[in-house]
Simulated assay, not measured.
Amino acid sequence: MLRRASGSVRSRRAGRAVAAILGTAGILAAVSGCGLLGGSSNDSGGGGNGQLERTTLKIGAMPILDSAPVHIASLKGYFKDEGLDVTLEPVTGAATAIPKLLSGDLQLTYGAYVPVLQAQAKGTGDFKFVADSYQTADNIFVIMVKANSPIKSPKDLTGKTIATNTKNSITDLLAKSALDTAGVDSKTIKWVEFPFPDMGAKLQAGDIDAAVVLEPYVTLAQRSTGATSILDTSSGPTANFPISGYTTTAKFAQENPKTVEAVRRALTRASEEARNRTTVEDAVVKYAKIDKEVAALVRIGTYPTSLDRTRLQRTVDLMKKYDMLPKDVNVDSMIIDSAKTAK
């Protein structure tokens, strides 16, 4: 449940803190190859220790709630416990990280499942999912309208202009499903793209009728402009929907099975730790430079501790329904064997 600060002074202070944090996160997410998320950006080739094929790795990460496990694993020394020297490299998402995986600049990356599945279907590369990362919960992804908007119910969204951060992404995939479920023909929607930090201002200015927003931007829009949620896109058919995980190439997984397994163990351990909200809040304060008061305000989804073929197949099926896959993909073949048998 969302914990609220008491008093107008705390509200104003938290609002300012959120704005400052989001600016910091945006800068970090936009930077690549500079090692800002911790560790050295130098890669000497990985080496080995007699037990692992290589010990030095670069893993793509983002300073957001969704990728908390990889940061927890780094902050708490879980990678080191597995004999790994891991550098977390800033990426803006799976789509931008995929070329780095293919070139070997990254060995693994955090990212949404949708662009990885699209790349697999297009034959861009052959990819393996090593571990799950994030799953939706109530009101994590919502469609918002400005304060005093004439849009009072989901059905009022028919034919309207709605912003998403990226077209044909997990964001508008969930939104389209939720709209259709609510009786709104998603094909009537005019989709436009804006970065999440800009959506509150765009709503307030009347440039868009609504926006698909995720945390922590939901909380920011509510507090800074009075925007309100009109539809939870992660409810009904999309409740507890898989959002993101950790990916590597099939080639790297085949050549470095013990190393990949060590990474999976560290991430699984961190995901277990992330069941404790306080652990997530403490980590976010450190890796995204968030004020503790702000970290206590945002809604947080769940961090699965194992990969599940059935969950991932939901993503594939929904993508096919909305023409986001050029052809079918075999999800089972994309999950590393150790993850299939993990409990």
Results as ranks from 00 to 15, higher is better:
55 T>E: 05
56 T>Q: 15
57 L>I: 06
58 K>T: 05
59 I>D: 02
59 I>Q: 03
59 I>M: 04
62 M>K: 09
62 M>G: 06
62 M>R: 10
63 P>A: 12
64 I>F: 11
65 L>E: 11
65 L>T: 15
65 L>V: 13
66 D>H: 09
66 D>K: 08
67 S>T: 06
68 A>Y: 01
69 P>E: 04
70 V>T: 07
70 V>P: 01
71 H>R: 04
72 I>M: 12
72 I>K: 08
72 I>R: 01
72 I>E: 06
72 I>H: 01
72 I>C: 04
72 I>Y: 03
73 A>W: 02
73 A>R: 03
73 A>T: 01
74 S>K: 15
74 S>C: 08
74 S>W: 13
74 S>P: 04
74 S>Q: 15
75 L>Q: 15
75 L>E: 15
75 L>K: 12
76 K>D: 15
76 K>R: 14
77 G>Q: 07
78 Y>V: 00
79 F>I: 11
81 D>Y: 09
81 D>I: 10
82 E>A: 13
83 G>P: 05
83 G>R: 12
83 G>I: 06
83 G>Q: 05
83 G>D: 08
84 L>M: 09
85 D>V: 15
86 V>R: 13
86 V>G: 12
86 V>L: 13
87 T>M: 14
87 T>D: 11
87 T>W: 14
90 P>V: 07
90 P>H: 07
90 P>S: 12
91 V>L: 08
94 A>L: 10
94 A>K: 05
95 A>Q: 12
95 A>T: 08
97 A>S: 10
97 A>V: 09
97 A>N: 06
98 I>L: 08
100 K>A: 08
100 K>C: 02
101 L>V: 04
101 L>N: 01
102 L>C: 04
102 L>A: 02
102 L>Q: 10
102 L>F: 03
102 L>D: 01
103 S>Q: 05
103 S>T: 14
104 G>D: 00
105 D>H: 09
105 D>Y: 10
107 Q>P: 00
108 L>C: 02
109 T>G: 06
109 T>W: 07
110 Y>N: 02
110 Y>E: 02
110 Y>V: 04
111 G>L: 00
111 G>M: 00
111 G>R: 00
111 G>D: 00
112 A>K: 03
112 A>E: 13
112 A>R: 05
113 Y>W: 12
114 V>R: 01
118 Q>T: 08
118 Q>Y: 09
118 Q>C: 11
119 A>N: 05
119 A>G: 03
119 A>R: 01
120 Q>A: 13
121 A>S: 09
121 A>W: 08
122 K>I: 05
123 G>K: 11
123 G>N: 12
125 G>C: 10
125 G>I: 06
125 G>M: 10
126 D>I: 07
127 F>D: 06
127 F>M: 11
127 F>L: 02
127 F>A: 06
128 K>E: 10
128 K>F: 12
128 K>A: 14
129 F>C: 11
129 F>G: 10
130 V>S: 04
131 A>H: 14
